[in-house]
Design a protein around this nucleic acid. Structure first.
Lengths: 223, 223
DNA sequence: AGTCTAAGCGGAACTATCTCCGTTTAGATT
DNA sequence: AATCTAAACGGAGATAGTTCCGCTTAGACT
């Protein structure tokens, strides 16, 4: 889902070993057709209206084809999120500061979380859908790994003595789709308010002169 | 699911308006039988083995009965978690410090999160199951509301100027079942290590002399 | 004891996900 | 062009969640 080359020709490099290296032309055609139809379904009726059977019918292919292309419901959702994820990664990896390189670490983390919130504001339902139908897949996805590595690096730069990986996971949990939707729909928070809440959290990390961490228990891995 | 009286007689006060106030004896009998069977199914084969059809068959009732008692899969999961939740609430509301009243706020928060982690260690799969099959229900459950109110109160006591509700939600997100299972199974963190990570987060809250919050954007509710 | 009725029960039926496998085809090789 | 085969396709069927509705029953009231 993440590792693809040859975007212009429409050919896709699949990362899984033992799988074909390039898609056949009919497969590529179906992938694009299915994604296009899925987009319109979601746009008109929300994620609830997106069913595998219905998608296959509307796209004029068999259900087997849908499953072959996207593995399952969660895979379809991740595929739909992929476009936005790509450009998001471009921005925080190579774009202009404070989101991209150049700004101080804490400022970049702040910008990242703000941008994340803005993305959620349009795609939270799809995110939640994906997470709920494949809870483990979220953490294994290239998107999550990239976000985590990005935050962990910045956290380490900001405060060398903290357990950056744990905190990165923690920050990403705070901007999870489920909580976001609850805050937005039920608590009626604006994205501005959420960003303020996140800022507050970050200010604590920033202001704490001594996190008093000493890595208790993080040296060895137990089971 | 939360508001019940008359525990000894087995009668249950249902909180939903327009519903019967007390269960009929056969209904109570079936509820207990179903919960007992469900427990053994989960104990032997994990949550994956828990199906509504199978449960009904093993308990010797019709599927309709299962749905009448528990509404849906998520409701069944929440019912299974209810016993533990009850005693957990007793402990942090009325038990001995630092979990119960008497200790300083930050110490109580710390104890709460540690206890939460210990609970997850035995019940994370059931929690995840419940959350994924009814993502909105998590936040509306009495359990979540209670945890949130508890943390928010303690946070307010510790630092009057922070947005306690937002931070309470944030802390609960960090101990979400999905992340916990990932950390435990994939990253192979021990519960001790997770507690250390949480301590670090709390120490930041505690150490930050000025969270620099000024409640930006939290005054009015937008949509 | 008889009656009445709201609540509970059971399981057929409907829906949607996902798997399986026989058939078809893209495209490489000759 | 003919051949060959890995990949893709389609849709029937297995499985599980959920709803619906006609029948049954607990328990309240006479």
């Amino acid at each position: 889902m993440e590792i693809r080359n040859d975007q212009l020709s429409g050919r896709v490099m699949l990362p899984v070993l033992g799988q074909p290296v390039v898609e056949r032309s009919d497969a590529t055609r179906n992938r694009h057709a299915l994604l296009a139809v899925a987009q319109t379904i979601v746009a008109s009726g929300g994620v609830a209206a997106l069913s595998m059977d219905g998608l296959a019918a509307q796209a004029g292919v068999g259900v087997g084809t849908v499953y072959r292309r996207f593995k399952d419901r969660a895979g379809l959702a991740y595929a739909l999120l992929d476009h936005g994820e790509r450009s998001f990664q471009q921005e925080f990896l190579f774009g202009s500061p404070p989101l991209g390189p150049g700004a101080p670490p804490i400022a970049r983390i702040r910008a990242f979380l703000h941008a994340y919130i803005d993305r959620l504001d349009t795609q939270a339902e799809l995110h939640l859908f994906a997470e709920c139908h494949a809870p483990k897949a979220r953490f294994h996805s290239g998107a999550y790994q990239t976000h985590r590595a990005h935050l962990a690096l910045l956290l380490t730069q900001a405060r060398p003595n903290i357990h950056a990986n744990y905190l990165a996971d923690a920050l990403l949990a705070v901007v999870g789709a489920g909580l976001f939707l609850h805050q937005r729909r039920e608590l009626r928070l604006s994205t501005t308010q959420m960003k303020a809440g996140l800022d507050q959290l970050l200010n604590c990390l920033d202001a704490a002169t001594d996190p008093n961490v000493v890595n208790v228990g993080f040296e060895n891995t137990s089971r």
